[in-house]
């Protein structure tokens, strides 16, 4: 059907809460937009997320966080990516993340943050634009 590069995205739900509605909706929307989505599901630790991202050679990691623990989790994931020598993997997030935390998260290296109710097309466009990879060569 198609040859060439495909965008690969890891979608994970770190932390303890189990509200995976958003993560699943996004995963499915990305698949329908032609991306390969590696879905690792609930209760993922930063180490598990980063190791999976390395093994799967993904272009981006999407983390869905609704527990309020976003600062702790993003900090750890980004530090681990650096430590493991893959700092270029794009990290983006979704969930209940207050705006006042955005600048801090972005300066730490988080690419973009999507609030609940965001159109999935917004996320798709962002990823296509940022990853600049041709879906259908």
């Amino acid at each position: 059907m198609t040859q060439g590069k495909r965008i690969r995205i890891l979608i994970a739900k770190p932390g303890l809460d189990g509200h995976d509605r958003g993560a699943k909706v996004v995963a499915r929307a990305l698949r329908n937009a032609g991306m390969e989505v590696i879905y690792v599901g609930l209760h993922q630790t930063p180490l598990q997320i980063v190791n999976a991202a390395i093994d799967e050679d993904v272009d981006a990691i999407g983390l869905s966080i609704l527990s309020g623990a976003h600062k702790t989790i993003f900090t750890k994931v980004i530090a681990l990516l650096k430590k493991r020598g893959v700092p270029k993997v794009l990290v983006f997030g979704g969930g209940t993340i207050p705006k006042k935390d955005w600048n801090g998260l972005k300066s730490m290296g988080v690419g973009e943050i999507f609030t609940p109710g965001s159109d999935t097309s917004k996320i798709i466009n962002y990823l296509n634009r940022t990853l600049k990879r041709d879906k259908n060569v």
């Binding site: 059907m1 198609t2 495909r6 995963a27 499915r28 990305l30 698949r31 329908n32 937009a33 032609g34 991306m35 390969e36 989505v37 590696i38 879905y39 690792v40 599901g41 999976a52 799967e56 879906k135 259908n136």
Partner: peptide, 10 residues
């Protein structure tokens, strides 16, 4: 779409 949902890692 050519996309895929890869869930085995769960």
């Amino acid at each position: 779409s050519g996309g895929a949902f890869l869930g085995d890692r769960i």
